[in-house]
């Protein structure tokens, strides 16, 4: 009995260390790329920068995910596949319809709001792994972005940003800003700004105005990500409001941090009434 307690506490220490190291690696990678590289990059090759961007982000994201998954109860694990499928299927539909948005993190944000940041991290990274397995491996280097979205959405939930309908898009916009900043080195150094037709044109325009490559991809991200995530968070708060209260209150995270306040959010405004 005592050995199993010792084991579980040592495992908890290991998980905390993994999460901390993972987070530090991601931040360090970004800082190194921003502070250490631009001069060298502008000259010719982005080779080393892209290796560090991909390697640092991927290892950081993996450590975060490994440290997080052990904390998740089976009820949360069972929900993650649904959330990932939601990310991917909606992301694809949006692309087919031709909206100038991604909307590929609705599931991640939903899971974070119901089960916390650790669950969001796992949903985020595995979304991109599965995207890589099923549609396009280009998604894989961007896994860290979904991870960051999962973490921030989880903390937004803890701070009550899903209690009111007008707070969710604000939290979404902030998340979008961080996502844009984090993803910019990948777009710049791995893909040379060419992640898509429209985004590529915008990167080119910023470069023509005299921005560096990293500056251009950062600005391009800041143009689209905050809006995209604001919409995503709004969609999520609407879905949450439509869920039965009993289902939401089953989640220990929701109860502990009173994610929805004492009662469920009451739909206000015309968007909600339409349902």
């Amino acid at each position: 009995m005592s050995t199993s307690i010792a084991q579980s506490s040592s495992r908890r220490v290991r998980n905390t260390v993994l999460v901390a190291v993972g987070a530090v690696i991601i931040v360090a990678t970004y800082l190194y790329l921003v502070i250490g590289q631009p001069a060298e990059v502008a000259e010719s090759s982005t080779s080393r920068a892209s290796l560090i961007a991909m390697g640092g982000y991927l290892i950081g994201a993996l450590l975060l995910a490994i440290g997080s998954i052990h904390r998740l109860p089976t009820a949360t694990i069972a929900m993650v596949p649904v959330a990932i499928a939601l990310n991917i299927v909606v992301g694809q539909i949006v692309a087919v319809i031709g909206l100038p948005l991604y909307l590929d993190s609705i599931g991640t944000v939903l899971v974070s709001a119901l089960a916390g940041p650790a669950a969001g991290v796992v949903t985020g990274i595995l979304t991109n792994v599965i995207w890589g397995l099923t549609l396009s491996p280009i998604a894989l280097p961007f896994a860290v972005v979904q991870v960051v979205i999962g973490v921030l959405a989880g903390y937004a939930a803890r701070w009550g940003m899903f209690r009111r309908f007008y707070l969710a898009p604000i939290a979404g916009a902030v998340t979008g800003i961080v996502a844009a900043i984090i993803s910019a080195p990948i777009s710049a150094f791995v893909f040379g700004g060419a992640t898509g037709g429209g985004t590529g044109a915008i990167v080119g325009a910023f470069q023509a105005m005299g921005q560096t490559l990293l500056g251009a991809t950062t600005l391009q991200g800041l143009l689209s990500d905050p809006l995209d995530k604001a919409i995503t968070f709004t969609v999520v708060v609407l879905i949450l409001a439509a869920m039965p209260g009993r289902f939401r209150q089953r989640f220990p995270f929701v109860r502990e941090y009173r994610v929805f306040g004492k009662t469920s959010p009451k739909p206000t405004g015309e968007v909600a009434v339409e349902r």
């Binding site: 893909f191 037709g197 044109a201």
Partner: peptide, 16 residues
């Protein structure tokens, strides 16, 4: 699509 955009964007607007 990636290669076409890459060549156009970087070929025409590369800062260096």
């Amino acid at each position: 699509p990636i290669i076409v955009v890459l060549v156009l964007v970087q070929g025409l607007t590369f800062p260096g």
